[in-house]
């Protein structure tokens, strides 16, 4: 084998580290907006990229990152090139926000058809925004290739993929022939550190921008998510902050307060 052709599907999402107060709901338009922070690459898709880079380092190959959306930020997504991906392909057009999972999978399928042959597709098990966790498996069904869901470890053995699939209380060791698709879980480990220098160097790497017509998709075949209602739950509590002259004193008072609260909780 002369190396593996790996495609990573990555979604741009609002920063999931944003506090709940930054998340705004528009019940009329039934849309969610996140104020104040730059979008990021879906953290679990970053994990998928890390998996791709480790496979490339071990077995050789080429890593292509594919992202679809309405308003993609090249600045945000270029991070994948800085981390070590070889190319970045953006499918960007009007009306691509808030697609339903099947339409997203269909769009990725058409883009991957245009890309040509591949050995492995990796993506995160779900996105940090709508988080339906369906797109990877649907894409594999459209491509007619095997898919292993929720993978935390990957090996290539005799041209087949061998993966640890997370199950309740352990994992299943599963084998599938290539080409295959894997969705990865956070247990795989975080994306490597990306330095400012690497980000600068990545400016010269290729980024391709495609539209719907480039991937031969008729916009009328794409469906949006059907959101009937949106609201923000409130999770607030009144917090008593324990103070003291020294941390030791804080620790002691914290214990006293905890036991006190516990007694009133138990109705003693």
């Amino acid at each position: 084998m002369t190396g593996l052709r790996i495609i990573v599907c990555a979604k741009q999402v609002p920063d999931p580290e944003a506090p709940a107060s930054a998340v705004d709901v528009d019940p009329e338009k039934r849309r969610v907006t996140v104020k104040g922070l730059m979008p990021v690459i879906n953290p679990l898709d970053e994990v998928a990229l890390e998996a791709a880079l480790q496979i490339k380092e071990k077995y050789g190959g080429k890593v292509t990152v594919l992202s679809v959306g309405e308003r993609l930020s090249e600045n945000v997504l270029r991070k994948v090139l800085a981390a070590g991906a070889d190319e970045l392909i953006l499918v960007q057009d009007e009306g691509l926000d808030d697609l339903d999972p099947y339409s997203t999978a269909l769009l990725l399928f058409k883009a991957i058809e245009k890309l040509g042959t591949f050995d492995l597709i990796l993506t995160g098990r779900e996105s940090a925004d709508w988080g339906s966790g369906q797109v990877g498996l649907m894409l594999a069904e459209l491509l007619g290739i095997p898919a292993i869901n929720w993978v935390k470890r990957i090996e290539v053995v005799n041209g087949a993929i061998r993966a640890a699939k997370v199950v309740h209380g352990g994992y299943d060791l599963v084998e599938a022939p290539l080409p295959a698709l894997l969705t990865v879980t956070n247990e795989f480990g975080e994306l490597r550190y990306v330095s400012i220098m690497a980000l600068k160097r990545a400016r010269d790497k290729p980024v391709d921008a495609w539209t719907l017509s480039d991937v031969d998709v008729d916009p009328s075949t794409l469906r949006k998510m059907e959101v009937a209602e949106l609201f923000k739950p409130r999770f607030e509590r009144m917090c008593t902050i324990i103070t003291g002259k020294t941390p030791e004193e804080v620790g002691e008072r914290l214990a006293v307060k905890l036991v006190e609260e516990l007694h009133s909780l138990r109705g003693r």
Partner: peptide, 8 residues
């Protein structure tokens, strides 16, 4: 399309 080798 796949084979389950073992549960660990």
């Amino acid at each position: 399309k796949l084979r389950v080798i073992e549960r660990v």
